[in-house]
């Protein structure tokens, strides 16, 4: 049975006809062709699919598209400024070499931005705890932790 879901993604109103069982990430990737949001697992562990929904970081692989009806969703494609200037958190990841293959990166950045909004000056330990739901196999987290600290401070300073 097909259902219609309507939501706002990166500021734009969109709708899609999908099966009830369709996941939010499937709508984002397949229907909207926003392929920056990735799928790395099937148990909601890796966090590669993290998007912002109504201002909060959520795993788009573990919710149905129907649950996002009427929601305001932001994906990694909506994070930089319209002119392409990187968000301070994205810039911090680049400066601190917080990414290698880039596959977990969109989820890391989406989670980090949400976290930094509430933690303007996090400690190393706090950041490591905040990454509980995001797996990276390349970086050993060292530079991700540094990037998130710097990104959070840059966000707080309004850069």
């Amino acid at each position: 049975m097909a259902v219609k879901v309507s939501l706002k993604v990166n500021g734009k109103s969109v709708s899609a006809e999908v099966e009830e069982r369709t996941l939010l990430v499937t709508v984002i990737r397949e229907n909207l062709r926003l392929t920056g949001t990735h799928v790395g697992c099937d148990t909601a562990q890796c966090g590669a699919c993290t998007v912002s929904m109504n201002g909060k970081a959520v795993k788009s692989c573990s919710m149905l598209a129907m649950q996002a009806e009427g929601a305001d969703v932001m994906t990694i494609e909506g994070v930089a400024k319209p002119d392409g200037t990187l968000h301070p958190m994205q810039a911090a990841f680049k400066e601190h070499h917080g990414l290698q293959c880039g596959f977990c990166t969109p989820g890391m950045v989406m989670n980090a931005i949400d976290y930094a909004k509430h933690h303007p000056d996090p400690t190393e330990e706090q950041i490591r705890e905040a990454l509980e739901g995001n797996l990276c196999r390349c970086t050993g987290y060292h530079n991700i932790v540094k990037a998130i600290g710097a990104g959070a401070r840059a966000m707080a300073a309004g850069k």
Partner: peptide, 21 residues
């Protein structure tokens, strides 16, 4: 030197194989 590939990975513009439709 900061990486040339980072901009596309950070903005969701990477082209991984599953992105090919």
């Amino acid at each position: 030197v900061e990486r040339k590939e980072d901009y596309r990975f950070l903005t969701g513009a990477g082209q991984y194989t599953d992105d090919v439709e």
